[in-house]
Design a protein around this nucleic acid. Structure first.
Lengths: 159, 159
DNA sequence: ATAGATGCAAATATTTTGCCGCCAG
DNA sequence: CTGGCGGCAAAATATTTGCATCTAT
């Protein structure tokens, strides 16, 4: 049961080896029961090269094992959210009103989306870290979650 | 047809005098047809003291004039979005998965929500303006829209 | 063995669309 | 008068829930 054999037709690549089983390891460590379905879903999310919504996660999972149900995707996403292992994004609703998920990295980042071509890139910035500290100080808030989504037109798409 | 006579029972206040008809003025200026329904909806949005979703906008509008249909709310929101007069927010899905709207101010601001009490405050920052300029420079993007939503616990809600 | 997970169907929530009659300009 | 607008019903999309069955530990 190698983790590198999956390749999706449309040019999407699942690099399941990138960070081997980060999410799965995290759940195991917390004593969460690992079912067949969960393993498949975690494999998909761990190996995703871009932000996926529930539907994409389901389709990818079913290519690996068709016995994964749509409802299980939502329940697993909910589980991961409750454990704080994934972030939920909207990406400015460029592609629709569904949510996108990404496994929670060690550092916050900003999502920058091109409104024409839909490409999303991530961006880290010390300025953003400063901004958060400023807010904690000035507003008396303990920040636990941030979401910054910026839309515009990238070089290639500008007239 | 005074603009200050509406008061909603549940403690919500509609301060219709704050900025008299900013949205309505903007649409008039653009030669957009002003129907009875649109006037009511714009009045609600212009006078809102907090971020409203489509359902809240509908309920408030129907208190003023019951002849406003749910579909018209969505169509009017769409109109305002197309004219760039309102911003669409998610507020981190604290209260659900619907969208919240606010009339587009002259300056960008950050939304800071307490995850316990749900209070949302707005925050402007020169640091944020710098951050945007940094992104335009470093990513070669022309930024046209930004959404920053930060969640945490406010002073009063922290244990 | 059993607590917890899954599948299925149906419900819920939110938003969009087609069509036709209506009204603001 | 007339083209855009609104009402209605129905569709589309996204997500959640109740319940019986199955399974990882």
């Amino acid at each position: 049961m190698a983790t590198s054999e999956h390749r999706v037709s449309s040019g999407e690549r699942i690099n399941a080896n990138a960070r081997p089983g980060k999410l799965q390891a995290a759940l195991e460590g917390r004593g969460v029961r690992l079912t067949r379905q969960r393993r498949v879903l975690l494999q998909v999310m761990d190996g995703a090269e871009r932000h996926l919504d529930a539907g994409s996660i389901l389709r990818r999972a079913q290519k690996i094992d068709p016995r994964v149900h749509r409802v299980t995707v939502y329940r697993t996403l909910d589980l991961l959210k409750r454990h704080g292992l994934i972030d939920e994004l909207d990406l400015l609703h460029i592609r629709g009103d569904q949510h996108y998920y990404e496994s929670h990295g060690p550092r916050d980042h900003i999502h920058i989306a091109c409104l024409r071509c839909g490409k999303v890139r991530e961006f880290e910035s010390r300025l953003f870290e400063q901004l958060k500290r400023q807010i904690e100080r000035d507003c008396g808030m303990k920040i636990t979650i941030t979401r910054t989504e910026i839309g515009g037109y990238c070089d290639s798409c500008r007239q």
